[in-house]
Amino acid sequence: MELSEIVVKEWAKGWSLDGWKKRWESVLCNAYETADNVVKDESLAPNSAGSTALVLIVSPCQIIAANCGDFRAILCRGAQAIPLTIDHKPDRAYEMEMITTNRGKILYWGCSRVEGILSVSMAIGDHNLKTWIVSTPEVTFTARTEEDVCLVLARDGLWDVLSNGEVAKLARTELRRRRKLGASSPADYVSRKIVKKALMANTEDNISIIVIDFNKYF
């Protein structure tokens, strides 16, 4: 079952909590917990297998982001690059305290790693390290404005070599240019352009990317 399907099922349960933000936080946290429990079954995956996960819920008035790991999302608003997520790394103050309080070690092996193994401090799965990491997502809420241009979601292979500002500038420029040309899929073109730039910058990690053009969908 996909994480998006789990979120839909959790929402349908109709949590009776005060306020829509609290409801969304509960729905998303429960969905991630359900997904994490699914992969406890070693017939599906070894206990050393895991994944980062990012869910975005976008409406005409709000963007809700639930992030677990280092899959990052930015909002291109006017000339700004607004981060919607924070990378969960072992050397981030909160995560470092969580790990060391539970007598875990943060070792450097190319980058900071939990027990010298995992380069993120939050993940679905990775049950061999669950003493020190969690699957509970960090949930943020961002109100929409008329200046919103697009969203860019990508794995760390992109952000290792390109900054939020560089990606946002490239996305804005290329979207504007493709729209003027009347191109049918400007967001697809932009995603390929961004990946190409990351490859030219010699990224050493894999890249997954999604560009959402607000001009087309919202």
Rank of each mutant, 00 (worst) to 15 (best):
Y94R: 13
R176N: 10
D91P: 02
R113L: 04
R103P: 00
P90D: 06
V149S: 07
S119K: 06
D160E: 15
Y108L: 14
L118W: 02
W132V: 00
E166L: 14
G110S: 07
S121C: 01
M96Q: 11
V161P: 08
R144P: 03
C111N: 14
H88K: 08
E147D: 15
T100W: 00
E115I: 01
A123S: 07
L129P: 02
R176F: 08
A93V: 15
R172C: 13
G110N: 09
L162N: 14
G116V: 04
R103G: 05
R103W: 06
V139C: 06
K105S: 10
L129V: 09
M96N: 04
G125M: 04
E138F: 06
R92I: 09
S163G: 15
G125Y: 03
R172K: 15
S135N: 11
L129F: 04
E97W: 04
Y108D: 09
I133Y: 05
T173C: 13
F141S: 08
T145Y: 06
P137W: 01
R92P: 01
V139H: 05
E138P: 00
E115Y: 00
T136M: 07
Y94C: 11
A168Q: 10
T100R: 08
F141K: 04
H127D: 04
E138K: 07
V114T: 00
V134M: 02
R113E: 08
T131P: 04
R177L: 14
D126M: 06
R172L: 09
L118F: 00
D148A: 12
E97P: 01
G110Q: 04
L151E: 00
L158D: 06
V152S: 00
T173K: 15
L158N: 07
W132E: 01
L107H: 02
D156K: 01
D91E: 14
G110W: 03
E115D: 05
T173W: 05
T101H: 08
E146A: 13
V134F: 01
V161F: 11
R172Y: 03
R178G: 02
T101Y: 05
T173F: 05
Y94H: 09
E95K: 04
A123F: 02
I106N: 07
D91Q: 12
L175I: 09
E97S: 10
